[in-house]
Computed example of a mutant assay.
Amino acid sequence: FAEVVLPEGVKAEGFGLHPALLDAALHAIGLADGEAEGLPFSWSGVRLYASGATALRVRLAPTDADGVALTVADGSGAPVATVDSLVVRPVSAEQFVGEGGQDDALFGIDWVPVSLAAGDD
């Protein structure tokens, strides 16, 4: 079981389920077995019943296929979402590093000159 809450000032409007809230709930998967190093790999049976939640109560239960089932409710216990199975796969920092050990190969800085239009100060 896990309880997660969005920080003050973060709005849940515009999301079926706020991504930060869902991510925080998924962190509880690794707490049961002590292996928090993984990323969501395969989702099945995902259902959304309500939107706009700023706090969640999450029940995690193992499935037969090396996955976990999630039952998600809001702070009052009303259903928000269910997931029949989520499989997480291990990932290491080395998997994110590009060939040749360049972990910043996708990033660069370009300074582009911008001229101001008359009256823009």
Score class of each variant (00 low, 15 high):
Asp103Met: 09
Ser44Phe: 11
Gly119Asn: 03
Thr71Trp: 15
Val88Phe: 03
Arg47Glu: 11
Ile29Val: 06
Val114Arg: 10
Pro113Asn: 04
Pro113Gln: 04
Arg89Lys: 13
Ser76Tyr: 11
Lys11Ile: 14
Gly38His: 07
Ala78Cys: 10
Leu17Lys: 08
Gly9Glu: 10
Ala78Thr: 13
Gly101Cys: 07
Leu60Gln: 01
Asp120Leu: 15
Ala117Phe: 01
Val68Tyr: 08
Ala93Met: 04
Gly101Phe: 08
Pro62Lys: 00
Gln102Asp: 15
Leu21Cys: 01
Ala2Ser: 06
Leu56Tyr: 00
Leu26His: 03
Ala50Trp: 09
Leu22Arg: 04
Asp110Pro: 01
Ala50Asn: 00
Phe96Lys: 01
Gly16Arg: 13
Val58Thr: 02
Asp110Val: 12
Val87Gln: 09
Ile109Phe: 00
Arg57Val: 02
Glu99Ala: 14
Ser51Glu: 10
Ala93His: 07
Ala36Gln: 01
Leu6Asp: 01
Thr82Asp: 02
Ser51Asn: 15
Pro90Gly: 12
Ala2Pro: 00
Ile109Val: 02
Leu39Gly: 15
Val4Tyr: 02
Val72Arg: 13
Asp121Lys: 11
Leu86Gly: 01
Glu35Thr: 02
Val88Ile: 00
Leu106Phe: 15
His27Cys: 05
Ala65Thr: 10
Glu94Arg: 07
Arg57Asp: 05
Glu35Trp: 02
Pro113Ser: 03
Gly77Pro: 10
Glu8Tyr: 09
Gly52Ser: 06
Arg89Pro: 11
Val58Lys: 04
Asp64Arg: 08
His18Tyr: 06
Leu22Glu: 03
Phe96Asp: 07
Tyr49Ala: 13
Phe107Glu: 06
Pro7Thr: 09
Gly14Cys: 10
Ala65Gly: 04
Arg89Gly: 03
Glu99Gly: 14
Gly98Ala: 06
Gln102Cys: 14
Ile29Ala: 07
Glu94Trp: 04
